[in-house]
Amino acid sequence: MSEKILIVEDEAKIARVLQLELEYEGYQPSVVHDGLEAWGMIQETGYDLYILDVMLPGLSGMELLRRIRRKGTDDAVMMLTARGTTVDKVTGLDQGADDYVTKPFDMEELLARVRVLLRRKGKPAVAEEELVFKDIKLNLSRREAYRGDHLLELTPREYDLLVCFLEHPYHVLSREQLMDRVWGFDYAGETNVVDVYIRYLRQKLDKPFASSYLHTVRGTGYVLKEKSR
């Protein structure tokens, strides 16, 4: 079952775009435009992630956040607002928000943050039990990776990198996207760590086999696709 996300946003166009993008990613988003109505839904239904606008009619996003946290649940909460001041951000984080995104935002960045939050809260990043590409198979519950019948001995970082590529085959992923999805937004290191781990992953995923899957797109990033040697 895919993760349930409640979007509480009074700007209808923004809410609709978020809903469509999250549905495309395989989640189950619901939309509400009023804080009081949202609180009623929250009391009746459990959600894996809340995306809350700060300025809402009925109840503010901050008040919704406080009520969610008073319930004692560990559900992920992302605050979404046009405000960009440090005071607003600190207030939200102090009240228990897991992340804070300022409008206007980049959709790919927001989706990456959603994936990070759900992983941190112990939710699977995808609904499927397995990810498959050609002769690569990942068992998500056991965190095992195979190429054909060969078990790949991957480190946790290598495994998470491979998950990213299998979730988006044939899509070029930049170093920044990979870093956000695997290392998280609070990682303070250099982006060249991605290149290092891509090299490690290639040694196990591609080198022993007749065909290679991980390819460099010069000046952009990396892509998973089939290409015979």
Rank of each mutant, 00 (worst) to 15 (best):
P124K: 09
L18K: 00
Y213P: 01
Y197W: 04
E44N: 09
I51Q: 01
R70Q: 14
W39D: 00
D34H: 11
N192G: 03
G72F: 05
K103Y: 05
I7C: 10
L65N: 07
V90C: 13
Y24R: 15
D10Y: 04
E176N: 09
S211A: 07
L138H: 03
I51R: 03
V87I: 15
R218F: 07
D34E: 10
L80W: 08
V8K: 13
P104Y: 00
L205W: 01
P57A: 02
E167Q: 15
V163S: 13
L111Q: 12
T81P: 14
E109P: 07
P169H: 13
M78T: 06
L173G: 01
R202C: 05
K134A: 14
I136S: 09
L152C: 11
D149P: 15
K204V: 10
E130I: 04
A82L: 11
G26F: 01
D106G: 06
S30K: 05
V8E: 11
V223M: 05
E129D: 07
L20K: 15
R119S: 08
H215F: 00
H171A: 11
L140N: 06
I14Y: 02
L178H: 09
F133I: 03
V196H: 14
G35P: 02
D149W: 12
V223D: 01
V132H: 10
Y24Q: 14
F165D: 13
K89N: 08
E9I: 08
T220W: 15
L154D: 05
W39E: 01
R142T: 12
R147W: 06
V90A: 15
V194P: 10
Y213R: 03
E144Q: 08
D106F: 04
E130W: 08
G72E: 12
D106A: 03
L18C: 04
T45S: 07
D206Y: 02
D34Y: 05
H171S: 14
R147S: 04
Q95S: 14
A145W: 04
V87E: 15
D135R: 08
K207V: 09
E176G: 01
M179S: 15
N192F: 12
Y47G: 03
A145F: 06
S174H: 05
A188H: 12
E25H: 01
T85M: 15
Y197C: 00
G122I: 05
G84Q: 11
